[in-house]
Simulated assay, not measured.
Amino acid sequence: MPLIIPFLVALGIFCHGLGHLIDALSNAGFFHWLNSIEWSAMLNWFRTAPVAAPQVSSGKEALYSQFQQFMDMQYQISEMKRHILTLPALPDEGY
């Protein structure tokens, strides 16, 4: 038997199942729900330009860099706390 016959049978079975799936989705109102979405607004939201970094005046650059260091330190401390909580307890700690 040529190889094309089983392929065509499998393709027919797949298309038959796909037809039933599309029919079930349309009966459930799925396509009506898809049409109710405002796709143009969603696409415009994805295409918007990224927000630029805040412009800091020359007198406040030192304060801004100190603020960045402080926020970075807070993040590192929170990550360290999270890591410490995952460590096993010592034998004399009672767990």
Rank of each mutant, 00 (worst) to 15 (best):
A49M: 09
C15F: 14
E38R: 10
E61A: 06
L63F: 07
K81Q: 11
M1S: 11
Q76I: 07
D23E: 12
V51L: 14
E79H: 10
I22A: 09
N35G: 01
A41D: 14
Q68C: 05
I13D: 07
I77C: 11
W33Q: 08
P50D: 12
H83Q: 04
P2V: 06
F7I: 12
F30Q: 05
P6H: 02
W45N: 15
Q74Y: 04
Q66I: 01
D72E: 08
L18C: 09
A28L: 05
P88R: 02
F14Y: 14
I4S: 11
A41E: 14
I22C: 04
V56R: 00
A10R: 15
L8A: 08
L8D: 04
F67R: 12
I4L: 09
Q55Y: 02
Q55E: 06
F46N: 08
M71D: 07
L63Q: 13
M1T: 08
L34W: 10
V56I: 15
P6G: 01
S58P: 01
V56D: 01
F30V: 07
I84R: 11
L85N: 01
A41T: 15
R47G: 10
M1A: 11
F14K: 04
G59M: 03
M42A: 13
A52W: 00
F30K: 02
M80L: 14
S57D: 05
L85V: 02
P6F: 03
H32P: 01
I37Q: 04
Q68V: 04
L34A: 11
Q74R: 12
I4F: 08
Q69P: 00
A62F: 02
D23K: 13
L3D: 13
L18D: 10
S40T: 15
S78Q: 12
V9C: 04
K60P: 00
L87I: 02
E61M: 14
L34P: 00
R82N: 13
L43R: 13
F67D: 05
M1P: 03
S40M: 11
D23H: 14
E61V: 15
A52E: 03
A52L: 05
F14L: 15
F31Y: 14
Q55K: 11
V51I: 14
G59I: 00
S36C: 06
G19Q: 05
A24M: 03
A41Q: 15
F46R: 12
Q76W: 03
D72R: 08
I37P: 04
V9H: 04
P2D: 13
W45S: 15
S26H: 03
V56P: 00
G17W: 08
L18W: 12
W45L: 15
I84F: 07
A53E: 11
P6K: 06
H32S: 15
F46I: 08
S26K: 09
A62E: 06
F31A: 10
N35H: 03
P54M: 03
I5C: 11
D72I: 00
L85E: 10
A41C: 14
A24F: 05
G17M: 13
K81F: 07
Q69Y: 06
H83A: 12
A24T: 04
W33A: 12
Y75D: 06
H20G: 03
M42K: 12
F31L: 13
A41P: 02
L3E: 12
W39T: 13
P50M: 01
L34Y: 13
G59N: 06
I22F: 09
L11R: 06
Q69E: 15
S40Y: 13
L87G: 01
D23N: 09
S36L: 06
P88Y: 00
R82S: 05
Q66K: 09
Q76Y: 05
A49Q: 11
F46Y: 07
P6W: 01
